[in-house]
């Protein structure tokens, strides 16, 4: 009873981090130079699976993310395939190392960040990275990915290992809804239309994809036809798909578990401003810090739940009609 080890919170179930950790273990055989870097948080990032399956390729850096991030550059320089793992906020702590020693040095190194956004939940604002997509997107040569469900996370894990270049990928802490089947495909730089519609396009990434599909369902009952696009690659963004959706639906909503400044919304707005300008509404945390609470409660409080997407879709359609 009292002598039993405490259960790790949230490590069971279908969270994106668990899916990532399991995928990494399975891929280790195929990528003999793969090494995983950890800053004493393997239980939280999902790489405890890798630690168990491949202890000789699991590199412990202690609670020292700056050294870990830059060391990944050195490991890549001598032919290893390093995957840096920690929480998204601590990737921000080491972002200058990612900039100089990974991106500028053009290293084939991957950064995989768990605990992004309000999805972190009860740990509160200090741990809820709402700035990481914007920050990493601003680094030249950095590919930025945020998959939507466990299946897509596993596919994206393979894709980033096969890809030559620095990548920042978000996973997720909380149990995630399963959206895709075994036939799902993932390609870096490509978005997918998950639901057809002609009135508005909702472009979402990460946990917001499930909420976008819920919002589309709610709006369908009000005779509003919502197109839902899953956009797991924030950089490089799928400009061709975005322009086509803007052309065909005339307005766009972006949805992300991130600050409305500079993340998916920013990337979509930049792409459409240059190709097919149209009314765009942004669903995201409105330039404030998060708070403690369960992820679904926080999503409602901060307006990034399906209700927030419904409102934004209506606003976008109204602006389109007024134009």
């Amino acid at each position: 009873m009292g002598s039993e080890a405490p259960a790790l919170i949230g490590t069971s179930g279908d969270s994106l981090r668990e899916s990532f950790g399991k995928a990494l273990s399975e891929l280790a055989r195929e990528f003999p130079n793969l090494v995983v870097l950890d800053a004493d948080i393997a239980g939280g990032t999902g790489v405890h699976h890798f630690r168990k399956s491949h202890p000789e390729r699991f590199l412990q850096f202690g609670i020292a993310e700056q050294n870990m991030m830059a060391a990944a550059g050195g490991l890549a320089a001598v032919g290893m395939l390093p995957v840096v793992t920690t929480f998204a906020v601590f990737c921000l702590r080491a972002i200058e190392q990612a900039r100089l020693s990974l991106a500028y040095s053009r290293r084939n190194a991957k950064i995989v960040a768990s605990h992004p956004g309000l999805d972190v939940g009860p740990d509160g604002a200090s741990a809820q990275a709402l700035e990481d997509l914007a920050a990493f997107r601003a680094i030249p040569g950095m590919t930025v990915i945020s998959p939507a469900d466990p299946i897509e996370t596993a596919l994206a894990t393979r894709a980033i290992l096969e890809f030559d270049g620095p990548v920042y990928m978000r996973t997720g802490r909380s149990p995630a809804k399963r959206l895709f089947g075994a036939d799902h495909r993932f390609e870096i730089g490509k978005g997918q239309v998950l639901r057809q519609g002609t009135d508005v396009t909702v472009v979402a990434c990460g946990v917001e994809v499930a909420r976008a599909l819920e919002a589309a369902e709610q709006l369908a009952s009000q005779d509003v036809a919502v197109r839902v696009v899953n956009m797991p690659t924030i950089k490089p963004i799928d400009t061709v798909l975005l322009a086509r959706c803007a052309e065909e639906t005339g307005c766009v909503v972006t949805a992300e578990d991130h600050n409305i400044n500079g993340g998916l919304g920013g990337a979509v707005a930049e792409a459409l401003a240059a190709t097919r300008p149209c009314p765009i509404e942004f669903v995201g945390v409105r330039d404030v810090f998060g708070a403690s609470g369960e992820p679904e409660e926080l999503a409602v409080l901060f307006g990034i739940g399906s209700g927030g997407i419904v409102e934004a879709a209506k606003k976008a359609i109204a602006r389109k009609r007024a134009a």
């Binding site: 550059g73 050195g74 490991l75």
Partner: peptide
Amino acid sequence: SVALGMAMG
């Protein structure tokens, strides 16, 4: 740190 990563690798 990069040099350390090289030594490790």
